[in-house]
Design a protein around this nucleic acid. Structure first.
Lengths: 325, 325
DNA sequence: CTGAAAGCGCTTACAG
DNA sequence: CTGAAAGCGCTTACAG
């Protein structure tokens, strides 16, 4: 390549990187040969020298979860534009695969890791940090370890949803079906529900809150129990879409029209949310935006000389009004 | 590392690779230091020498499609066991991003590419082959270009599904709603439908076949038109789950019970298939198995000295009997 | 059974 | 404005 253009490899390197001035004529000649030969610097050799691999990794508990793939797509979108490759790795929750996968990644010298999952221990995080690999975590607070943080505002998302419910349907008795007790993001979503009711001057009816599980079955159980209350709810705010689909089942079995007799809301906007009948009013979790934000945080530290304190980016969620509320 | 153990880097390299005998004592000493230091050979340096990167790439039109992520998970499962990394890249169908993404991948010297999408031109394929990168394609015939092929037997899958329908529900008038005319895998699925009817000694009712689109709306249109036939169908075989969900909508709007008045089947087993009411009887596309098979084909050529002619692996599909038929 | 040395293809001080 | 050379950390012929 260098000999083709009649210059040294040094010069070729510099016209590609732009790290030092090259005379216009030389530059033109080299660029011409580059184009003609379709030359592309060997990333492996470059990586050996620079100790950079130009790759970002996303680690998730389940690569099959659509939210996670949205995150991956968002990361790839910004990474590709900066000539970084995005790799997605699955580290199933069961059996603590996470340390192994993280090790694989740091051994391969990826430049940055996005931990799109819960369940990393402080030790896992510290080990990553120790290798110098840049880190972004999802969903947890900044204080809980090294690395930048990206998260969605679940509380605000639920608050907006419940406001919509109150405004459009005029409900006054509003119930809540959470997931497993104590498991996030159930708590944050419950908090948003409380806040919206309080702000609207409504009671927060303790008899209309059920904690079951983040599943369709949990929704059925929860809905049956809340519908049995002395003064049954006009609306059911469900902590995720699966719960809401279970609540829909119960409404159908009771012959209740939705949203006429009973309004129902979900959360997450999984594919099925728009496929059930009536289609679910829900909140879309901005996975793609979170992926974008995470990649940007990484790239700023990797390429733009950012070296300040850890940062936390909180993204707004988007209300998806459909038929069920 | 080498100095720690009091041996040359040559020896360290050989105890790791096992490519030449090392005396038991030396080996033990080196292995001890490796363990103590948590030493791991730098893959970048190794790659520069061996011209191998120990990475496999999966290219898909839409990383968000659950089928594609299943494929990725299957690839990763077998790749990880052989210390290969799997990277997933999205090349959207619109705008011909594919050549760029492919170029990125070959520039990075990935060892193998799995093309999990339709729409690659002969030229794209030849370009990959020219770089020496191993290639596996999905869903097209062997004769259509270089590389090994993995595909699911869609015709057989539909045949099994329709046999099930006939056997369990005793239907004699069975309709078919396809996707866009001429677009695969609609044709293969239609073929399986025809075969099952013929084998059961039933008519293939030309007036009960509609070609619409692979969407819920397509299903609605198709179902309305077939239900208007002089002698309406007892069952509707739909070319995918979305179409079946649309058919379900129409059954509900007409007050038909499913499967009592009308049996309905889907194809693919998307998440929503088990979430709608009644749950869809459908066929599961073995994405994970296809990913596994693809990675194995690649690894055989990369690591096991396989250098024979192109191979085609055809995987069976799995019937998922649920409520709708 | 083991080691010294070349070389993979870059980047980057150093020199001019 | 440009080039010769060192060096990134391995693997692998070559030599003993």
């Amino acid at each position: 390549m260098a000999s083709e253009a009649g210059v040294s490899v040094t010069t070729v390197s510099h016209v590609i990187s732009g790290r030092r001035p090259v005379s216009p004529t030389t530059r033109a000649r080299v660029e011409d040969v580059i184009r003609r030969l379709g030359y592309q610097a060997n990333p492996t050799a470059r990586g050996l020298r620079t100790r950079r691999t130009a790759t970002l990794a996303l680690v998730v508990p389940d690569i099959t979860n659509p939210f996670n793939t949205e995150v991956a797509a968002g990361m790839q979108e910004v990474a590709l534009a900066r000539d970084y490759l995005t790799v997605v790795c699955e580290a199933p929750m069961n059996g603590r695969h996470l340390p192994d996968v993280l090790r694989q990644l740091t051994d391969r010298r990826v430049d940055g890791i996005v931990l799109g999952r819960y369940g990393a221990t402080r030790r896992d995080l510290n080990r990553i940090a120790a290798t110098g690999t840049k880190l972004v975590r999802f969903g947890r607070r900044l204080s809980e370890g090294p690395g930048d943080v990206v998260r969605a505002d679940e509380t605000e998302g639920t608050r907006t949803l419940v406001q919509h419910l109150i405004r459009t349907r005029g409900c006054r008795r509003v119930g809540f079906i959470g997931g497993e007790p104590g498991v996030e993001p159930g708590g944050e979503r419950h908090e948003g529900y409380r806040r919206a009711l309080t702000e609207a001057g409504l009671d927060v009816p303790e008899d209309l809150v059920a904690w079951t599980g983040f599943t369709r079955e949990g929704g059925r159980t929860g809905a049956r129990s809340l519908l049995a209350a002395d003064s049954p709810p006009q609306a059911l705010v469900c902590a995720n879409d699966l719960i809401a689909i279970g609540a829909l089942d119960v409404a159908r079995e009771r012959g209740l029209t939705v949203p006429g007799d009973l309004a129902i809301t979900g959360y997450d906007d999984i594919e099925a949310a728009s496929l059930v009948s009536p289609a679910l009013t829900t909140v879309f979790n901005p996975g793609r935006d979170m992926g974008r934000a995470a990649a940007r945080l990484l790239l700023e530290r990797l390429e733009d000389g950012e070296d300040g304190a850890a940062r936390e980016v909180i993204l707004a969620q988007r209300l998806i009004p459909r038929e069920s509320a």
